[in-house]
Design a protein around this nucleic acid. Structure first.
Lengths: 139, 139
DNA sequence: TAATTTTTGCAACATAATTGCAATTATTTA
DNA sequence: TAAATAATTGCAATTATGTTGCAAAAATTA
């Protein structure tokens, strides 16, 4: 059942179905938050080459399957795009919480907030809200 | 005239007045947006050791003279803190605009926005809002 | 100006990320 | 289905990024 979704995501994006892609997508589907490259290296029981992981992540970002999350400590985090993220419609509203202690990233996409108003001449295509602090587990 | 400000900033923060500190502060004062480590290495005509630049930036961040900006492509950006940033009062509320086209980062610190409400058990220490889009120059 | 403190630069190290290319694997098509 | 084609992977090498310890140099203090 999960498998079907993964395959259709890959096919929809004209990507060959390979072990690393399936495994990495699966990881994200089973993860509530976001993952860093290092997490993926550890969590994927099979050990794919680092380069393969880099390239897979990059491909997924290009296809709109994953997006990167800006972080205050500038580590690279990846998260699944919701739904038809590839259409670009849902790309403009991201709220994430990143724990200063355990570094876990939580998606808070359902959280409401008011977008800041921009000066004239600036056009917004996407807004990320990054809340740093201490998460419920580390409290 | 610029020189005086720089010296007073350093003195106010109990920092020795050195070539690299003066030069790097000067760079930021002459820059509208934000700078990455690499920019600074290039733009400072004199070539300071990489380590010195790292340490200088780190010191400035600790003292509240500069702050970092999270970016989606995870390059580390630094920008001058406005006014009394060193008091810490303005540290937990950053709004930045990063142009998709020219990559310039703008501080929009005076922009108002509502902080998202967090689930119970989460404590916020800092919130960053990153607006991506097209800036006034690229419009 | 001498003594003290702070900062710098070098060297070494550690980690993160990228590139080219040959070997492998997946897909296509005949 | 098997051969031909196309896409992807893994390896090796390279480059970029960031950190640490320590001795030399510079700045500050007395």
């Amino acid at each position: 059942m999960m498998g079907i979704e993964i395959l259709s995501v890959l096919k929809k994006n004209n990507l060959s179905i390979t072990g690393s892609r399936k495994k990495i997508l699966e990881l994200f589907q089973h993860t509530d938050g976001a993952l860093a490259h290092a997490d993926i290296e550890k969590k994927s029981g099979e050990h794919f080459d680092r380069v393969t992981i880099y390239r897979t992540l990059q491909t997924f970002v290009e296809k709109g399957i994953l997006h990167t999350i800006p972080t205050a400590d500038n580590s690279v985090l990846y998260a699944l795009c919701k739904d038809d993220c590839s259409q670009g419609h849902h790309h403009d509203n991201h709220v994430h919480f990143i724990c200063d202690n355990c570094n876990t990233a939580y998606c808070l996409d359902n959280t409401d907030y008011a977008k800041p108003q921009l000066p004239k001449g600036f056009k917004q295509t996407r807004t990320d809200v990054i809340v740093s602090g201490i998460c419920i587990k580390c409290n």
